[in-house]
């Protein structure tokens, strides 16, 4: 039996915060976006710079994971070749829902300057994309801004099962 008695409902001492399930779930999701390390070309260097100390992605709760099973967002950083297309689809399928995709840089968006037989003309031909970042390559600030926009997008949606799974087809 406690010797003292605290009146939690008075003096602002209530250790309870009231919120909606949507808000608390989305708050958790949007502030712990773990990213799949997916550097395919020179954009991967900028992605690594975003994760390193100068730009420090950990501030946003974005930690790079080496496994798709632990990742929430796939940052497609670089040129997607036709040989690699089946692997990106396989890795995307291994991510648990809800999952998001950031297409980083011109090559991932549209094929970029590689208007050739061996380059997929935009990674959205293979997987559904949430956010396209322009640039060749985008600066780490662009990627940070992209992650913050993705956080906004996550918070704007319902958290429950009502969220429609994204399929390309």
């Amino acid at each position: 039996m406690a010797q003292h008695k605290v009146n939690y409902t008075q003096d602002g001492g209530l250790p309870v915060a009231l919120t909606s399930i949507d808000k608390i779930v989305n708050w958790g999701r949007s502030n712990s976006i773990w990213a799949l390390t997916y550097g395919l070309a020179c954009c991967g260097i900028e992605m690594m710079a975003s994760g390193a100390s100068r730009f420090d992605f950990d501030r946003y709760g974005t930690i790079f994971r080496a496994s798709p099973r632990q990742a929430d967002v796939m940052i497609v950083a670089g040129t997607l070749t036709k040989k690699h297309a089946e692997f990106i689809k396989r890795l995307y399928d291994q991510m648990t829902e809800p999952r998001w995709v950031i297409s980083m840089g011109s090559c991932a968006n549209t094929g970029g300057m590689f208007n050739t037989y061996a380059t997929v003309q935009g990674c959205d031909r293979v997987i559904p994309v949430d956010l396209y970042l322009p640039g060749c390559a985008p600066r780490p600030e662009t990627l940070q801004y992209g992650v913050m926009l993705l956080q906004k997008k996550i918070r704007a949606n319902k958290a429950g099962n009502a969220q429609k799974p994204k399929r390309l087809m």
Partner: peptide, 18 residues
């Protein structure tokens, strides 16, 4: 061989995956 690929190359990833 065309630089932008023939029909096989143009549909390679779509045919293979989907």
């Amino acid at each position: 061989y065309p630089l932008e690929g023939d029909e096989f190359a143009a549909w390679y990833e779509v045919d293979k995956i989907y």
